[in-house]
């Protein structure tokens, strides 16, 4: 479903951060900001909450640890105990390296997979670019135009007052 956005472009990232603060103070909701690099201070200015993705790492890590430990225990103690070099069947100490590696491997892969899912990034996706050059040197601020209660004129003036170089309406599917 596509919607209409009011897109303001900036060349100065600091001006954009100030504009975000001003727009939010005026009661508008910032839909998103588009930038060639992660802008510092923008999380707070936009009110973006800290991502909960590390929880994925933590949970998958715990599961991977348990899996690695039980799997090694099962194969070396229950399924086919084998005396190698006189080591005890349950050599927990010697299982640590593989436990660690599997924890890192699975939690790392899961975190990245979760990021791709959450941010809806996948191969073949057509990038919805709201302004030209946001992957190069342009910074864009997007407000979503709603059916009611969205004063386009006021928003436009506010953005222009706060250093926007161009303000355009654009329809896009995000």
């Amino acid at each position: 479903m596509s919607s209409t956005f009011l897109v303001a472009t900036f060349s100065d990232p600091d001006a954009l951060v100030r504009a975000v603060v001003a727009v939010r103070e005026a009661g508008f909701k910032v839909y998103d900001v588009f930038a060639p690099y992660p802008l510092h201070g923008l999380d707070e200015a936009m009110g973006v909450k800290r991502s909960r993705l590390p929880w994925v790492t933590f949970c998958v890590g715990l599961c991977a640890l348990a899996l690695a430990l039980t799997f090694q225990f099962y194969t070396s103690v229950l399924d086919w105990p084998l005396n190698v070099g006189g080591k005890p069947d349950n050599s927990t100490l010697a299982f640590i390296p593989i436990c660690f590696e599997l924890t890192v491997l699975l939690s790392g892969l899961a975190t990245v997979a979760a990021l791709f899912l959450r941010a809806r990034l996948y191969p073949g996706k057509t990038a919805a670019l709201l302004a030209e050059g946001v992957t190069n040197d342009t910074f864009a601020l997007a407000l979503r135009r709603r059916e009611s209660g969205f004063d386009v004129h006021r928003a436009r003036v506010l953005l222009e007052q706060n250093g926007a170089e161009r303000v355009k309406e654009k329809e896009a599917e995000l």
Partner: peptide, 9 residues
């Protein structure tokens, strides 16, 4: 050199 809010990362 700072924006009003400091990044916590």
């Amino acid at each position: 050199h700072h924006h009003p809010v400091q990044r916590n990362l």
